[in-house]
Nucleic acid binder design. Structure first.
Length: 947
RNA sequence: GGGCGGUUAGCUCAGUUGGUCAGAGCGUCUGCCUUACAAGCAGAAGGUCAUCCGUUCGAGCCGGAUACCGCCCACCA
């Protein structure tokens, strides 16, 4: 076979098809507005870098579903795009600037140093130049990402690609902001926010992670102003005491009832502050008295509001002590802590110090300890938006899969807090708010306002803040379709049918899309939300650059082929379970691809050998009959090649499938058992895959087709029909066999295509056909007539398989692999013997036997037969002296197993309540099994006694 | 502090509604270069389904408890 290489080389075909799919714009939905649609907007990857394995899993899962839906006749829109990723991109571009300035740095500290230097250079170069660099970065990485996606075979519509900072998209962002502001849902104010002193910006609660650290609980004495004693407060952050403006106790706490209203002197600074009563204080914690620092703690801020306390900021945006910190001004917060503790100790005001495990807030980006600081920010009220978003999920308009994510979503939504949406960054959507330099008024507008709405002053300056990146991504499902214009796309493809994302952005993104979608389109953004797994390394560790266990999708793809990696991911993608990915998996599915390749190679090779009339017929035979699909062709005595192909095929297939009885005579005019069997399996496999994919059980669908292709189609069907295929003759039988094989193979390619788009596209194009040959991805998924399902054939074929396997088994155990012994099969069941006899040729060939003869009734007493489940005994004739000890051991092992099963069944059947309560079919099944086992046991015992 | 998930063959994991479900891949062992494929073919070994108690005629599958492991959320100083 000169043309098709023996070893599948994915690199030689994958890039070609990737290019082809893009160039042909195959995945642009039809303009025809009438048919059913299926839409999904790709979670836009951040332009911060290239795609990782998590993306590859996500894109693979989406692509499988998109190709599947497309092949089921839906008009599919998969809209791709990218996210500007405000804070992440800004940090990365800064780091690049730093790296350029300090190219010789290396080692663990380099990143941090580059970041620091880059930030300095950013401030030096100013926004205009810096943003230019960001755009350059976007162009470069956007290209990389796009190339990666193409290479992975993502069947997206590139003509509709979007970027969250496209002019049109930005207009939608502004529109949303202005409307929310106008409706009073966005407000501006001084509140405690999470401030990252390194990033120099506020971040939302979600961008803060918590880390348990060993710390201390310091007990500090605050003397009463009147000199009569002191009150002890416990704190983990002594440096913040410099900003204390009260001490609080619980009014219900008897210990402190009479101190409320008295005054204490704040140590070190000697400020006189009140003791107040507030329900918030937990009497059981520490001493039951707490210092109150309204400017540096959200709880204290709330207490301060209730009691009208002053707010004294003692830590600034750089996390240094301010002038209000008195003698500690200019120290870092860490230095200040040390100094404060030292000075308190020296003053005798430190009662005790305990070890204490506390949870510190860390900036998710840079791992710096976040400082709760008072600052002027923009907030979005969540309650009014959350309520409909809760309802949409509770009433099932939006379905979240797996189910437990739904609960997590709801729990979070019920306890939602207002969202700080402003960021002190440069890269992102500028907040459309202008400050009047004359009167200080803040004007929110879609366009730059010409005059202040309050004082009519004309000197207005836009605030520097940008929006949290998730504010703009929250609009993704509708802003990508042209909102706020009422576009045709919006009408056809919104709501999206599906959204797929990782669990980590359920709150960041899914929640916001649902809230904003409902708010602005009066409709849900998507009907189903599937939460996919995390890709971990072979040891179930999270992949991370610092651990050095990151697998690069392109690298692994080049090594094993895209199809193999996709299949490896899909086959591990059980909903709700993380994926331990390893080279081993990719390797084993590369073997699968190779298997497919060689099966195709074999089939194509032999189709080429077909007699000319049959070959002419083949192209038409590989066009499924509309509305019916493929079915097995009967092994006709003569094919009438004269008639038009389509009529011919139809005349053959008009007969109801599965209707023919197995008979030994006349087989040539009827469908062969092996054909009925494989088409039946194909019908079943198709159904099972549809069910699995509908439930996002990728692993099940993958396993189903894998097993079918390899262990049924290749191991059995192909081997069975080999003689018909490889010995070309003018015999019509051979032609029918070739057509059936080609049909089965093609149908299997269709089922495989969503998982392995490249190899299936390649092989599909090599099959002869007369219809539309643009792409397998535009053909039907289900190619086989569902009515081909035929349990009787499946059972009969299984019986033959059992016989063959048993014979091979005996041969292997007896060391007879190289020989071709004769065999004998005995049974009372003449129909069984007839079944074997009529398929004798294949049985002999596949089992490696010389001859098979049949005994009606029992096996002769001198034989040592192996009983089969189908109710017959098999024996092989061979010269070799058997080892009676080993043979006895083997039989006894079988015997023991059987006995155990029998006991179990008998116990069950003896149980009256089982008989009365279990469904009849279960009872009947148990009885049938008992009979089978008893029979087999008896025959096994006989074998043993012969030894 | 709350919530969630896991514990099944040497390893990595499947097992949707309780009744041939005790499975797959990899690994191991045996024999084969059988003219599609050695990235292959044909066989084999290997598991009290974490532990205990319950529900049921019947439980990896449902309920409860325990022991490890992991994750998420949280404004208790």
């Amino acid at each position: 076979m000169p043309d098709i290489p023996k070893v599948y080389a994915p690199e030689s075909i994958e890039p070609r098809w990737a290019r082809y799919w893009v160039d042909q714009k195959l995945y642009r939905p039809l303009d025809d507005a009438s048919g059913p649609t299926f839409s999904l907007s790709l979670p836009p990857p951040n332009i911060t870098g290239s795609l990782h394995m998590g993306h590859m899993l996500e894109h693979t899962e989406i692509d499988i579903l998109m190709r599947w839906h497309r092949m089921r006749g839906q008009n599919v829109l998969w809209l791709p795009g990218m996210d500007h990723a405000s804070i992440s991109t800004q940090m990365i571009v800064e780091r690049e600037l730093g790296r350029e300035a300090l190219p010789d740095l290396e080692g663990p500290g380099a990143r941090r140093a580059w970041q620091r230097e880059g930030q300095r250079r950013r401030l030096e170069m100013g926004p205009e130049k810096f943003l230019e660099r960001c755009w350059q970065w976007k162009e470069q990485n956007g290209d990389t990402i796009r190339r990666q996606m193409e290479r992975m075979g993502a069947s997206v519509d590139w003509t509709r690609a979007r970027f969250t900072m496209d002019p049109a998209y930005s207009r939608a962002v502004i529109e949303v902001f202005v409307r929310l502001f106008e409706q009073g849902l966005i407000y501006r104010g001084q509140y405690i926010v999470n401030w990252c002193p390194r990033c120099g910006t506020a971040v939302s609660d979600l961008e803060v992670s918590h880390e348990d650290r060993a710390g201390h609980l310091w007990y500090i004495r605050y003397p009463f102003e009147d000199g009569k004693g002191h009150i002890v407060v416990a704190t983990t952050r002594p440096e913040t005491m410099l900003g204390d403006t009260a001490v609080a106790v619980n009014p219900a706490d008897n210990r402190y009832r009479d101190v409320i209203g008295r005054k204490v002197v704040l140590p070190l600074l000697n400020r006189v502050i009140p003791v107040i009563g507030d329900e918030f204080v937990d009497p059981n914690f520490g001493t039951g008295a707490v210092k109150v620092t309204p400017a540096h703690d959200p709880n204290d801020f709330a207490i301060g509001m209730r009691h009208n306390l002053p707010r004294i900021t003692v830590i600034d945006f750089q996390a240094q002590m301010t002038a209000d910190a008195g003698p500690y001004a200019g120290l870092s917060r860490e230095q200040a802590r040390e100094a404060v503790v030292r000075d308190l100790g020296a003053a005798g005001l430190l009662e005790k110090t305990e070890d204490y495990k506390l949870s510190v807030s860390i900036c998710e980006r840079c791992k710096t300890v976040v400082e709760p600081l008072l600052s002027m920010q923009w907030f979005l009220k969540m309650q009014p938006l959350a309520t409909p978003a809760i309802r949409a999920v509770e009433d099932g308009r939006i379905r979240i899969i797996p189910e437990n994510s739904r609960k997590v979503y709801l729990d979070w939504m019920y306890r939602i807090h207002d969202w700080c949406i402003s960021r002190q960054l440069w890269w992102g959507h500028r907040i459309p708010a202008w400050h009047c330099e004359a009167c200080g008024e803040v004007v929110v507008a879609r366009e730059t306002p010409s005059a202040c709405s309050k004082c009519k002053g004309s000197s207005l300056r836009q605030g520097p803040d940008v929006l949290d990146t998730w504010f703009s991504s929250g609009l993704w499902p509708f802003a990508t379709l042209g909102w706020p214009e009422q576009t045709e796309d919006l009408r056809r493809f919104y709501p999206n049918d599906l959204m797929i994302m990782g669990f980590d952005i359920l709150f960041f993104w899914a929640a916001r899309m649902i809230m904003l979608g409902l708010k602005f389109t009066d409709n849900i953004p998507f009907r189903e939300l599937y939460i996919h797994a995390l890709v971990r390394d072979a040891d179930r560790q999270k992949m991370s650059k610092t651990k050095g266990n990151v697998i690069d999708p392109i690298e692994i793809t080049e090594k094993y082929g895209t199809d193999a990696v996709r299949f490896a991911l899909a086959s591990s993608a059980a909903p709700g379970t993380d994926i331990a990915f390893s080279d081993d998996k990719a390797e084993s599915y590369r073997a699968f691809a190779n298997k497919i390749w060689n099966a195709g190679r074999f089939i194509l090779m032999n189709l080429g050998n077909l007699p000319e009339p049959a070959r002419r017929h083949l192209g038409a035979a590989l066009e499924p009959i509309p509305g019916i699909g493929y079915d097995a062709l009967p092994a006709m005595r003569s094919l009438e090649f004269g008639v038009r192909s389509s009529e011919f095929t139809q005349s053959l297939e008009s007969k109801a499938p599965g209707s023919d009885q197995l008979r030994t005579e006349g087989l040539r005019t009827e469908k062969l058992l092996v054909d009925r069997w494989i088409f039946s399996r194909l019908a079943t496999v198709t159904r099972e895959m549809n069910e699995a994919l509908a439930g996002y059980r990728f692993h099940e669908a993958a396993y189903t087709i894998y097993h079918f292709f390899w262990h049924e189609l290749c191991d059995w069907y192909l081997e069975w029909v080999k003689p018909e295929i490889t010995r070309p003759s003018e015999e019509p039988k051979a032609s029918a066999a070739a057509i059936n094989l080609a049909r089965v193979f093609e149908a299997a390619l269709h089922l495989l295509h969503p998982f392995m788009p490249f190899i299936t596209e390649e092989l599909w194009h090599q099959l002869p056909r007369s219809g539309d040959a643009r792409s397998i991805s535009l053909t039907r998924f289900e190619l086989v007539n569902p009515r081909a399902a035929d349990p009787v054939s499946e059972k009969q074929y299984a019986t033959i398989q059992e016989l063959i396997v048993a014979a091979r088994n005996i041969k292997a155990e007896m060391g007879l692999q190289k020989e071709k012994p004769s065999a004998q099969v005995a049974s009372e069941d003449t129909r069984l013997l007839e079944l074997f006899r009529s398929h004798q040729e294949a049985i002999l060939r596949l089992a490696g036997l010389e001859a098979l003869n049949f005994v009606r009734g029992r096996m002769p007493a001198d034989a040592s037969p192996v009983p089969l489940a189908s109710g017959c005994d098999l024996r092989l004739f061979y010269e070799r002296a058997i080892d009676p000890v080993a043979e006895r051991a083997r039989i006894e092992r079988d015997l023991a197993k059987m006995k155990q099963q029998l006991e179990q069944i008998e116990r069950q059947l003896a149980n009256e309540s089982f008989r009365s309560r279990a469904p009849q079919e279960v009872v009947a099944g148990a009885e049938r099994r008992r009979a089978e086992i008893t029979d087999r046991l008896e025959r096994l015992g006989q074998s043993l006694s012969q030894l």
